[in-house]
């Protein structure tokens, strides 16, 4: 189940500072907890999140085991032109998820 919620303003004006909010479904298992059998649960977290605006990197973040499950990340950027915002989450066990959202700048 690949799931993410992404909120991008519908039609911002050129030059406007916009807030982008993202939420992705991920267990963010820390690697420090023990399971029901007493054995340590292997770490399974999102390591890196990045957002590209028409290919240009506008925001990136590194995540660590202290980040809660289903991590929420909000950030700002300047609406420069109509185009595509590409969001990528990468993590342990080869986890990778990419979502693209179109943005129309007026």
């Amino acid at each position: 189940m690949a799931r993410a919620l992404i909120d991008v303003p519908k039609s911002p004006r050129r030059g406007e500072i916009i807030e982008i909010r993202t939420l992705i479904a991920h267990p963010m298992e820390t690697g420090y907890r023990a399971g029901g059998d007493g054995r340590k649960l292997p770490r399974d977290i999102v390591r890196r999140f990045s957002c590209r605006y028409d290919g240009e990197l506008v925001f990136s973040a590194e995540f660590f085991p202290a980040v809660a499950a289903n991590p929420y990340c909000a950030f700002h950027t300047v609406a420069t032109a109509s185009g595509t915002l590409t969001f990528t989450w990468e993590g342990d066990n080869g986890f990778t998820q990419t979502e693209a959202v179109a943005i129309t700048v007026t």
């Binding site: 919620l5 909010r21 939420l23 479904a25 499950a69 929420y72």
Partner: peptide, 13 residues
């Protein structure tokens, strides 16, 4: 806020 509420992930499913 539905965009912040992680419960919405399940709702979408």
């Amino acid at each position: 806020d539905d965009r912040e509420n992680p419960g919405m992930l399940w709702v979408r499913d």
